[in-house]
Simulated scan of single mutants.
Amino acid sequence: MLTYFPASEKDYSVLTNIWSRSVLATHNFLKAEDKNEIQKMLPEYFKQVDLLKWQLDESIVGFSGTANQELVMLFLDPKYFRKGYGHQILQKLIDDGINKVSVNEQNVGAFNFYKKNGFKMVSRSDLDGDDRPYPILNLQL
Rank of each mutant, 00 (worst) to 15 (best):
S20N: 05
R124G: 12
Y80L: 00
P135H: 01
F29W: 15
D77N: 11
G84A: 14
F29L: 11
F63A: 01
H27Q: 03
N17H: 10
L2Q: 06
P78K: 06
I38E: 06
K120C: 10
I136Y: 07
S123V: 07
Y4E: 03
L52W: 06
G84Q: 08
V103H: 09
D126R: 10
D131M: 00
F113G: 05
Q140D: 11
G84L: 07
M1C: 03
T26A: 14
K40T: 11
D50Y: 05
T16C: 08
Q48D: 12
F75P: 07
D95W: 07
V23R: 04
N17F: 07
A7V: 09
I38T: 08
T26H: 00
D50W: 07
D57H: 07
A7L: 03
L93I: 13
K92D: 11
D128H: 07
Y134E: 09
F75R: 06
W54L: 09
G84N: 05
K83N: 09
E105P: 03
E70C: 12
N28L: 08
G65L: 03
V72W: 12
Y80G: 00
N99Q: 08
D96I: 02
G65Q: 04
L90T: 03
A110N: 07
Y4S: 12
W19L: 06
F75G: 14
R21E: 06
D57Y: 08
F29E: 15
A7N: 02
M41L: 14
L74Y: 02
K31W: 01
N68Y: 01
E105D: 09
G97R: 00
